[in-house]
């Protein structure tokens, strides 16, 4: 599939969110988010702490249930139906801020368990794919170690490999580099950039604006449970329209 071949095929969005709302008790965390993501698009979400970025991204694979509005992922609407949710979760990989590797399993087991148990792959296939992925993220020699024996950057790369092993159609990243030391951030971002260039659909919460500039198709600025402004990196970085986005961008770009 060559994306440059003209004329562009009319594709359907892979993720559709319409007026998604979410309350935690009385607290209105998401006040109506709408977003459509096309296949192979890279979306970057940023905004102040507590603005609902994580909550939103977690509604996409229903780690949090939304309470009104509509979310359709890969043609499946997210409802209470458990089977649908598990299908959606297999098609969406997720990478967490705190890695969340399984400490009692080796790196290899961390990567292979999900495809073996959920995609019913044979072990030999799962391990072959896992080795390829470990090579892709640059740590094939760590396969038999336990997570605790790896550095933070290595752990996060294993987490990315683990998510990719399910061969998801899209990947969600929730601040994947913010728990890392500065010298490890680059190794993880490099993997993510490579992934974006390979055509993966990605939604990334991050404040690494270098990354956003390099690969993002569109940026969304969240504040207080709302999308305040969205657009291409060019538009947002150079001509922000809203006062709040201006201020926030000035803050994070200044250092």
């Amino acid at each position: 599939m060559n994306r440059n071949s003209a004329p562009a095929r009319t594709e359907d969005p892979i993720i559709i969110c319409r007026d998604v709302q979410k309350w935690f008790g009385k607290y209105h965390a998401l006040k109506g988010i709408s977003m459509e993501v096309m296949p192979q698009e890279v979306i970057v979400i940023f905004g102040p702490s507590g603005s609902g970025k994580s909550t939103f991204i977690r509604t996409i694979n229903r780690l949090e249930a939304h309470q009104s509005g509509q979310i359709i992922v890969d043609g499946i609407e997210l409802t209470h139906d458990v089977r649908n949710i598990e299908r959606v979760r297999m098609e969406t990989g997720m990478v967490f801020q705190q890695f969340n590797l399984f400490p009692h399993l080796t790196v290899m087991q961390n990567i292979t368990y999900a495809p073996m148990y959920n995609r019913k792959w044979h072990r030999s296939k799962a391990e072959k794919v896992a080795m390829e992925l470990l090579e892709r993220v640059g740590i094939p020699e760590q396969a038999e170690k336990y997570p605790a024996q790896l550095s933070g950057g290595q752990q996060q790369r294993v987490a990315i490999a683990r998510a990719l092993a399910m061969q998801p159609k899209m990947m969600l990243f929730d601040e994947p580099t913010s728990a890392l030391d500065p010298e490890m951030i680059k190794e993880v971002l490099d993997v993510m950039i490579e992934l974006a260039q390979s055509g993966m659909t990605m939604i990334v919460i991050t404040h690494e604006m270098g990354f956003a500039r390099a690969v993002a198709d569109r940026l969304f600025f969240f504040d207080e449970g709302l999308v305040v402004e969205s657009g291409t990196p060019d538009e947002l970085f150079n001509f922000p329209k809203e006062e709040r986005s201006k201020q926030f961008l000035a803050q994070i770009l200044s250092h």
Binding site: R3, N4, H28, M38, G199, D217, L226, V228, S230
Partner: peptide, 30 residues
């Protein structure tokens, strides 16, 4: 999947920008 040949050649999709609602006027009941 295929590598993207070039960042600048990526297709910019003309998608509707998500509606920006004002938090003050959008106080829905829980």
């Amino acid at each position: 999947r295929l590598l993207r040949p070039n960042l600048t050649l990526r297709r910019r999709m003309a998608l509707p920008v998500a509606p920006v609602t004002d938090p003050q006027t959008n106080v829905l009941p829980p």
